[in-house]
Structures are given as C-alpha cells and as structure tokens.
C-alpha cells in the first residue's frame, strides 16, 4: 500500500499540483486572459454544458464518423484490390503514396469551391484524411500475408474464395484496423481545422469563436472535451484491434 502511494500517487500528484500552480501563477502574474483562472474555466463549463456544447460535439462527431466510415470502406476495398492484384498495386501505389503526404487541410480551398461551406466540404476532408492511410495499411496487410498459411489452406483444398475469406481477410484485418486508428487521429485534427475555416457549427467553429472573442475559459473546455473524445475513440480502436486480431493480431 505504501509502495503504491510512493510509486504512483506521489509522482502524479506532484506534476498535477505543479502544473495547476504554474497555471494559477500565470493567470495572476501575467494575464488572466492568457491563462484563465480555474473558476473562469468552471463557469465556462457550466454555461457551455447547459448550452450547446453537446450539440456542437455531436455535429463534429457525426461529420468525423461519416467521413471516416466512407473513407475506410473505400480504403479497404482499394487496399484489397492493390494487395491482391499486382497490376492494381503497380498502377496505384505511387499515386496513393503521393496523396497520402498531402495534408488534408490543404484541400480545404478546393473542397469549399466544389461543395460550398458546411457538411459536405468537411466530410470530404475527413474522407481525404482517412482513405489513403487505410488503403496503404490494408494493401500492406494483404501483401504480407504469410505465404505458408495460404499454401496450407490450398493444400487442404481451399479455393480462391475460401483462401480469401479464411486466410487473407482475417490476417489483413488487424493491419486495416491499425490504419484506421491512425486515420481517426488525423480525422480529429482535420475536422477542427476544417470547422475553424469552413463551418458555422461544431467544435472547431466553437474554438475559433472563443478565440475571436478571447473567451479563454471556453477554449479550455473545448480542448478538454476534444482530448476526452480522442482518448475514448483511441481506446475503442485498441480494444477492437485486440478482439478482431485473435491469433493473427499484430498490434502496433
């Protein structure tokens, strides 16, 4: 018991107390607008929680999930195609690799010019942030399927369909999920930037408004909400990867 206190509780509390006191010092000695005092943050939270915080969060989440699901489905399909057919792989690999390195937010001006501001443009950016990384990971998974497993299944009389369903698919799934986990991280940062620029609702828009009106307490609440959402989503993916992987799992 004493060990746990000394080993775990002490270092955690040390840092948290240190950070909080630095923050208080900042707000007292530098500028309360720069470092909002804790009671201001509390007030902001109460006001926002009884206001439209939840609606803003929900809108952002809906955009993320729509774009993410569309992008992931497309990515898995193209990835399987590329992993399976050398012709597709040869033709698409460089193209996908090139697009993967374009920061999704750079597409915002094109997206707004094509779809106008609002849902479609932001969802397009999330698809863009998701699809290439999922494609590359899925492709990698299919391409690196252990050949002896395929041979074993084939020598037991499996046809191409069965090889795909029983060997290729389960061993690719963890790779695809790993790609999706990274993509989800990208989606979170992309949606914030996208909503700051081209939306009139959502977490990003809310943060931008708070900045313009210098409501630093609100910013703080927004950041914490974002952090919690990111954390929860990441944990869900880890659990999914562990579950779906089974004996094929290779969690990165």
């Amino acid at each position: 018991m004493k060990r746990i206190l000394l080993d775990r509780v002490l270092p955690y509390t040390l840092t948290v107390v240190l950070l909080l006191s630095l923050w208080e010092m900042g707000s007292r000695m530098i500028n309360p607008l720069f470092f909002p005092p804790l009671e201001t943050v509390g007030e902001s939270f109460v006001r926002m929680a009884t206001g439209d915080l939840w609606a803003q969060v929900l809108v952002s989440l809906l955009r993320i999930w729509t774009g993410f699901l569309l992008g992931s489905m497309l990515g898995v399909l193209v990835g399987i195609l590329m992993g399976g057919l050398p012709l597709a792989r040869g033709m698409l690999y460089s193209v996908v690799e090139f697009f993967r390195f374009i920061p999704p937010i750079a597409m915002i001006v094109l997206a707004v010019s094509w779809f106008g501001t609002g849902d479609v443009a932001t969802i397009f950016l999330i698809v863009f942030a998701t699809v290439f990384i999922v494609t590359i990971n899925t492709e990698d998974g299919v391409y690196h399927v252990t050949r002896n497993r395929v041979r074993a299944a084939e020598s037991l009389g499996a046809n191409t369909g069965q090889v795909f369903r029983l060997v290729i698919f389960p061993s690719t799934l963890p790779h695809a999920l790993t790609g999706m986990r990274v993509a989800m991280g990208n989606a979170f940062s992309t949606i914030i930037a996208a909503e700051m620029i081209a939306a009139d609702f959502g977490l990003g828009f809310m943060l931008q408004q708070a900045r313009v009106f210098l409501k630093t307490g609100d910013i703080f609440v927004g950041l914490v909400a974002l952090g919690l959402l990111g954390f929860a989503t990441d944990r869900i993916f880890r659990i999914l990867i562990d579950r779906c992987g089974g004996e094929y799992a290779r969690v990165a």
Binding site: Y12, I105, F188
Partner: peptide, 20 residues
Amino acid sequence: RMMEPITEFFRYIPAIAMVV
C-alpha cells in the same frame, strides 16, 4: 510517472486545436 499526466493528456489534443 511524473511526465505521464502531461504526455497522456496532451497527446489526444490535436496540435491544431492548440492553435487558438
């Protein structure tokens, strides 16, 4: 462990949100 509260908390806040 001293660093963990910092690293674990901030790694889920995208840098672009810190822009504000």
